[in-house]
């Protein structure tokens, strides 16, 4: 059996293109499985997975839980909207307490960039990063690129636009790394205040005009405006944002070609994406959600194959 090069999934940065292709191929089989009448396989029987979420999450957590259940893993859940430190217990203590109950894998979301990397230096269990602050969200990028591959046949050579709040987005960063590893061209678009100053050093192009950017791309991945992660004022109002960076049907109708529209959810309808696009044939948003389960099954399955220790 082919193996991943990594014991953990901390970020796309650490994966090779071969790793990503292996995850895709594995996800292909699992996608077939979850569309059968009996959706469950015994692959992770006797494996216990802890879903440890230090930040609010609805869909990522549901998606991981479902993936774990489809693989017949045993699951425990820990959620705390505060970072654990505020309760007086450190992250390391919290996780070690969970691991003392003989857990094999940890799926963690945390507000601090690098929190899963920190953990990986101290514990033996396999770690899956389910989002670390503004750093990475690797399974989201895998499901996004998997969905592009499914829709357009291949990621190689495609032009992908990421629109919106790049500065606070772990989805953007992981997508940039994944798309580049798979040979796509990446451009980002948004108010300059929401683009990291040095974003071009990552090999992506910058366009401030949304219509020009949309005309360039094959796929537009529209990001949620992360109001909760913005600590300072970056633009005057949501109204002005949606006027200049909101994607709507009129805008898409005015383009020279048909493009695919993605969104990692949850959508702020009428802000970054209008309903007339979100619910149209352009959008593959619900395919992304379905693919999320298959991708997460693939990741968990492959990491379990690597074993702990």
């Amino acid at each position: 059996m082919q193996e991943l090069s990594q014991k953990h999934l901390l970020g796309i940065k650490d994966l090779t293109a071969d790793d990503i292709h292996l995850i895709f191929e594995t996800a292909d089989s699992f996608k077939e499985v979850i569309n059968r009448p009996i959706k469950k396989v015994p692959s992770l029987r006797d494996i216990t997975i802890a879903n440890v979420f230090f930040e609010n999450s609805t869909r990522t957590k549901l998606s991981f839980e479902l993936a774990e259940k489809r693989l017949s893993a045993d699951i425990i859940n820990f959620s705390s909207s505060n970072s654990s430190v505020k309760k007086g217990e450190t992250l390391l203590d919290t996780v070690n307490n969970i691991l003392a109950m003989k857990v094999d894998m940890v799926v963690m979301r945390h507000a601090s960039p690098g929190a899963p990397h920190f953990l990986s230096k101290h514990i033996d269990a396999n770690i899956v990063n389910a989002g670390d602050g503004t750093h990475e969200h690797p399974t989201q990028a895998l499901l996004d690129t998997f969905s592009i591959r499914e829709k357009l046949g291949d990621v190689q050579g495609k032009k992908v636009l990421i629109v919106g709040d790049i500065l606070h987005s772990r989805v953007a960063l992981s997508n940039i790394f994944a798309l580049q590893k798979l040979g796509a061209e990446v451009k980002v678009c948004g108010p300059k205040t929401l683009l990291p100053k040095y974003i071009e050093t990552l090999g992506v192009q910058v366009e401030l005009d949304l219509k020009k950017a949309l005309n360039w791309c094959d796929v537009a991945n529209v990001l949620r405006i992360q109001l909760e992660r913005q600590q300072i004022k970056y633009f005057p109002s949501l109204r002005e944002y949606s006027l200049f960076y909101g994607v709507n049907k009129a805008l898409l109708d005015g383009l020279d070609k048909e493009i695919v529209v993605m969104h990692p959810g949850p959508i702020n309808r009428g802000v970054e994406l209008n309903s007339d696009v979100a619910d149209s044939d352009h959008a593959i948003i619900l395919d992304q959600v379905e693919n999320g389960v298959a991708i997460r099954m693939a990741v968990l399955y492959l990491l379990a194959g690597k074993g702990a220790g």
């Binding site: 670390d132 750093h135 990475e136 050093t201 600590q231």
Partner: peptide, 21 residues
């Protein structure tokens, strides 16, 4: 420097960390 964690540059960008310019 508000909320900054490390020097702002290509490295902080790839680590998703708020920079100290």
């Amino acid at each position: 420097n508000m909320f900054g964690q490390m020097h702002e540059g290509p490295v902080s960008t790839s680590l998703g960390m708020k920079g100290l310019p």
